Simulated assay, not measured.
Amino acid sequence: MNNCESEEIVEAANIAISNLLPTKSRSLYDIAYNRFKKWCAEKNVQVYSENVLLAYFSENARITSLPHYGRNILWLKPVTDIKRKKSKILTKSEIDRFLSSADDKEFLMIKVGLILGIAGACRTDELVNLTVDDIEDVGSSLIVKIPNTKTKIPRIFVVTDVGNILELFRKYLSLRPPHVKHKRLFCTTKQENPVGKNTMGKIPSVVASYLKLPDVACYTGHCLRRSSATLLADAGVDITTIKRHAGWKSTTVAEGYVENSIENKTKIANQNFILLLSLALLTDYLYYFINMV
């Protein structure tokens, strides 16, 4: 079982937890709660804990309703949702290394998917459904439209001509056979059948494998979206802009990227060091001034 999990899954789980008592499902909920109490009685459980919950769900894997047991106790989650890891991200140097060293004959589609996914913080299904009509080549840049998103918020992003990025895109588009009936941008090796979600979701792991990075399986389809937001955070972009760029309705996930940004932590640490140094110099100056007086 893959121990990596996207930020979207975590956010969805948190939303589900905050709505554990839907009116329409209350009867089923009560049944699940009574079943949980019966199990606790059989096991002579007096105090609820995370270990108790893990044991309960381990023995009752098919149970989907969550029993309530007090607001002041640890929120209950299914065993598969506890202590998961986030998808790993690709750094700027790793992205640049792959684009410059990987062979176009084998990895051209992967390169274009990586470029667009990072540039637009795209979800896997957004890349899958991307069509040739959604991309406008204006010479110095690409204007990419994502009309259908999970949050129902259409997005537009721009890919500028940095390095040979636009050349890679144009090369890939030129290989598209004229007789192809569908308009999806990403096609199979024969450039005829559209690429599916599973293939598209493996782009980050393919890149990680090529670069010989550790824990390749943890570079999931959500890696591109996380990497995009993290790179923006590393560049000092504010939360509001990151939220708008990725199309999030909530700031919770966007804030998580900034908190996990090593470069931002370093900047903050440097700023704090400068502040402390300034205070130290000011203290020395005041001490010297007082003694002189």
Rank of each mutant, 00 (worst) to 15 (best):
54 L>H: 12
187 C>R: 04
140 S>Y: 02
113 G>T: 04
81 D>N: 14
43 K>Q: 13
62 R>L: 12
251 T>Y: 12
273 F>L: 12
202 K>I: 03
121 A>G: 14
155 R>L: 09
128 V>R: 09
265 K>Y: 03
116 L>I: 14
271 Q>R: 10
193 N>G: 07
4 C>H: 14
150 K>T: 07
265 K>C: 06
228 S>L: 01
66 L>H: 00
12 A>K: 15
193 N>R: 15
160 T>P: 01
88 K>L: 11
284 D>V: 08
55 A>K: 09
9 I>C: 05
14 N>K: 15
214 P>E: 04
202 K>P: 04
282 L>V: 13
17 I>Q: 13
246 A>E: 02
7 E>D: 11
164 N>H: 11
270 N>K: 09
158 V>K: 14
290 I>K: 11
70 G>Y: 03
72 N>V: 10
238 D>A: 05
104 D>N: 13
56 Y>T: 04
177 P>G: 02
118 I>Y: 11
246 A>Q: 03
260 N>K: 09
184 R>E: 12
14 N>M: 15
28 L>D: 15
197 K>L: 08
170 R>I: 00
49 S>H: 02
149 T>F: 03
118 I>W: 09
177 P>Q: 04
56 Y>M: 10
268 I>Y: 07
164 N>Q: 12
155 R>C: 07
145 K>C: 01
149 T>P: 03
191 Q>L: 12
60 N>I: 01
159 V>S: 01
247 G>R: 00
3 N>S: 10
222 H>Y: 05
258 V>Y: 01
263 E>Q: 14
286 L>E: 13
71 R>P: 07
125 D>N: 10
86 K>N: 11
223 C>S: 14
104 D>C: 02
133 D>R: 10
239 I>P: 02
100 S>F: 04
213 L>G: 05
13 A>Y: 10
107 F>K: 05
194 P>G: 03
185 L>S: 00
124 T>C: 15
182 H>T: 08
78 P>D: 05
103 D>W: 05
158 V>E: 11
280 A>E: 11
241 T>C: 06
214 P>W: 00
207 V>H: 00
61 A>S: 15
147 P>V: 05
62 R>T: 11
140 S>I: 05
134 D>A: 08
226 R>M: 08
238 D>I: 10
173 L>M: 12
7 E>K: 08
157 F>W: 02
146 I>D: 04
136 E>Y: 06
156 I>S: 05
223 C>D: 01
61 A>V: 12
181 K>G: 03
76 L>Y: 02
34 N>Q: 14
167 E>R: 14
237 V>D: 07
132 V>I: 13
102 A>M: 02
176 R>F: 08
290 I>F: 09
33 Y>A: 15
265 K>G: 07
235 A>M: 07
250 S>N: 07
132 V>C: 08
261 S>V: 00
192 E>I: 12
187 C>G: 01
157 F>A: 00
234 D>Y: 03
173 L>N: 13
256 G>V: 04
9 I>E: 10
116 L>P: 02
69 Y>G: 12
225 R>N: 07
97 R>A: 13
234 D>S: 08
217 A>Q: 14
8 E>P: 01
220 T>W: 05
276 L>I: 07
288 Y>K: 15
48 Y>G: 11
118 I>V: 14
85 K>D: 06
